[in-house]
Design a protein around this nucleic acid. Structure first.
Lengths: 211, 211
DNA sequence: GCATATTTGTCCGTATGTATA
DNA sequence: CTATACATACGGACAAATATG
């Protein structure tokens, strides 16, 4: 990452995903630029990037705010996951290089679960599903999915029970991978669809409990 | 559109799609900001927007350039269209409000073809396929598709024979719509897949002839 | 390979309009 | 309604990177 703008965008993105900045919170240009020791112009360019990614939203003449995950955004995101992930998996070649990344993600998640490192399990889960999208061999689609996934992590950040959210999905991912490696992509895609249904329900339920 | 930045982004986007700015051309900050009568900082924010949309690309310390469509980008875009459009159509409700927009787009295209207004036919074609994506009821997916479509128009802009590119697809769109309205979304999606195969081949062939 | 000119990256100060207490 | 705070937009400045001769 060469330019200051890109580095800054990365660091603020990490803070957003880690939940250090609360949804709905307003990010003041003057205050943030002072605390980060960068000019307001530079910070505005960073805001523009993160706004395009959906992590911030912009109200004209009022400023930028951390996106507030809503029930409708969760539903929207899962619609996308169903379309993109299931189709990518159903049409996948079991010898695609991304399958190796899927396998490594599953292994990492298993290790993380054993040591109760739920942050690691969550990250591995994200990598697993990003790898599924890579099966479609479309750079633009992978970039788009990365943005959607970042938004989803914003939702996770609002919820406690990280164990409950992630633990049960390790085995499901392993089964999805096994079906693909066994040369049965259609079956694999069906399992993924079922996975997404359960995952969406869990998130929505946890989300509504917090309201 | 409230802010100057957004209006400017819209106007430059239009110029890009219309082919007024040639692919590969470098957009000088100083020159453009002078000719558009805006400050360099404002123009940089506009560049950031259009770069995120894929219409421009950025080389650190060298500036921004108009994206150059390539064979691989065309293939990438059509992979996305297959995944997104076909799935949206296959799972569509024939009573969805977007179906009305599809019908109006077909009617506009028929009128445009009769008067040999190929620009109008091309725009109507874009609206038709954007409406297909709206069948999936996902705001994020529709926004993403709009960006991909803008990039595709960048490719069209490089080619002559607009008639050849658009004329033959009016009837195919009409047939796709008819199947959906008749309550046969699966058949409709199959026809769309065939449409996309033919369209991709045509674009790629026309593109390679220009090289 | 070097020196120069150009351009971007970044920062600052400031004026104006808009939202809100 | 007034006052304050803030975002929007501008123009100037300088360092660093790049291109050019």
């Amino acid at each position: 990452m060469s330019t200051l703008t890109q580095r800054l965008a990365g660091s603020i993105r990490d803070k957003l995903i880690a939940g250090e900045l609360k949804p709905g919170e307003r990010l003041s240009e003057t205050a943030l630029s002072a605390s980060l020791k960068v000019s307001r112009n530079t910070l505005r360019e960073v805001f523009r990037i993160l706004t395009m990614e959906g992590l911030l939203f912009h109200e004209p003449n009022r400023g930028v705010f951390v996106s507030v995950p809503s029930v409708s955004s969760i539903i929207d995101i899962y619609r996308i996951r169903r379309i993109v992930e299931c189709r990518a998996l159903a049409g996948a070649d079991p010898n695609h290089p991304a399958v190796g990344r899927m396998r490594r993600a599953v292994e990492t998640a298993i290790v993380g679960r054993a040591s109760k490192d739920w942050a690691s399990v969550g990250s591995a889960n994200m990598l697993f599903h990003a790898a599924i999208v890579e099966l479609a061999d479309s750079r633009r689609l992978s970039v788009f999915y990365a943005q959607v996934a970042a938004e989803l992590r914003l939702c996770f950040g609002m919820l406690e029970d990280q164990e409950f959210l992630h633990a049960s999905y390790v085995d499901q991912n392993a089964n999805i991978l096994a079906a693909l490696e066994a040369g049965r992509p259609a079956e694999s895609a069906e399992m993924l669809d079922a996975y997404l249904t359960r995952s969406e329900r869990t998130i929505l339920a946890a989300f509504e409990r917090k309201m």
